[in-house]
Amino acid sequence: MATPVLDKVEADSAASPYITATFRIRRFNPEVSDAAVWEDFTVEIDPKERVLDALHKIKWELDGTLTFRRSCAHGICGSDAMRINGRNRLACKTLIKDLSPEKPITVEPIKGLTVLKDLIVDMEPFFQAYRDVMPFLVTEGNEPTRERLQSAEDRERFDDTTKCILCAACTSSCPVFWNDGQYFGPAAIVNAHRFIFDSRDEAGEQRLEILNDKDGVWRCRTTFNCTDACPRGIEVTKAIAEVKKALITRRY
């Protein structure tokens, strides 16, 4: 077997990696002022680092009052969705080099949810919509002793929507949601989809009725913002379309 070689990383690590980048951050703290303002921070940073690393550098070295949520730092926990250069992304999954760092990089809270402080928004309406679609397996009759059987094909049918990490990047990128917070939003529909198309589940009809509501799937205008925003690569718009189709045909 050939010896694996890895020239690219080895070459990169030898050169001095740092650049100077400006982060233009939307600041808001009602304890201080009712108005939100933009504030610029300039840091020396390796462009291969994440936007989250830059936010930490700012918080830890320049301004401890900068406030944001984060936890896992590698795109799994869903804490740090924010609007970076006008697009919803996870700060921990966005590398600085991919953002044209020669210009100021803007960072602001996700839209459509009330801003509480700096990049922190009120997540409650988002989670309420999620809870409203019955996001759990519903079965009838006696439980089997062993596991329920499910073919690999049936399991594959809803695989894409099981990836959701509830970060709200999709819902808060949706123009319908911005205009009317009553809309369930893409994330709740994705999580309904995950159960509607699970062969083991028996509450598909109920979930479809919930989504048939005036604030349900029919509000979707297929702008694809949600699909573009999803850090997990879920085909969100497609999932919503499948739910719409299931409502018409009552087959799923």
């Binding site: 397996l137 059987l149 499910q150």
Partner: peptide, 20 residues
């Protein structure tokens, strides 16, 4: 513990027989 999670809805990968 595994069977309980499956019954709670966990989408385990499946064998050709449909078991976990």
């Amino acid at each position: 513990a595994v069977l309980d999670l499956e019954k709670m809805g966990l989408p385990f990968n499946r064998t050709p027989d449909g078991t976990i």
